[in-house]
Amino acid sequence: MKPQVAFFDFTSCEGCQLNKLNFENDLLDILKHVDIVEFREAMDDKADHYDIAFIEGSITSPSCVERIHDIRRRSDVLVALGSCAVNGGVNAMKNLHPIDEVRETVYGEDKYLFATLPAMAVSSVVKVDYEVRGCPMTQQDFLKLLIALVLGKQPPKYGSPVCVECKLKENECLYNRGMVCLGPITRGGCDAVCPSFGQFCTGCRGILDNPNIDGMLEVMTSHGISLDEAKKRMLLYNSNEVQL
């Protein structure tokens, strides 16, 4: 029997889900390997058991916590999709402010009607087996993981910075164009798509293991931005990962 897979979304912009629906050319190939039993954007079936559950979005409320536990209980393999799910992503910027202030800003007088938690990675609440990084995640990356799981192989792991792919493409480094780029400490795997189009890396795939944060801040400030700005750039996607 083909593996039963399901997709769920939590706090996110649903950009990753939409990216999956854009598969067009590959969708039929994918459906040869798996049965999609739940897909919020596309259908409304429910099942008791999933071979693979794909989770998009971060965990931001008590009801999210309950729901993710329930999904985990029914799933053999659980995969976090996209930066919100993997490390909290941009949502986690709210964790830099007192939670009361955040509630007040968003809900005003009604703040007591909405329970909220700091924005958390899925892995902060339940065990996550695999991850697909990026904001949004790319189809290519998602397909690589899916094929690896279907074949029973280890999905690719990305332990090198964005600079590696950038260098291999022989891009002119954006630091030479007066820009400040997070490529050196950002986890690669995106084929350095942003620098290749002249846009500095904002760190959407997360920070590498054991980064030299002080060294990176020094690199950024010595290329013309303030320490405050450098920290903000670093935190954009990584508030849960970097302590500044």
């Binding site: 090198s160 910075p161 600079c163 590696v164 260098k167 291999l168 480094c173 490529g183 050196p184 400490i185 590498l208 980064p211 030299n212 002080d214 060294g215 990176m216 020094e218 690199v219």
Partner: peptide, 13 residues
Amino acid sequence: ASRCVGCGACTLT
């Protein structure tokens, strides 16, 4: 090592 950010540029070029 305190200044190196581990980007690999030195060796890749």
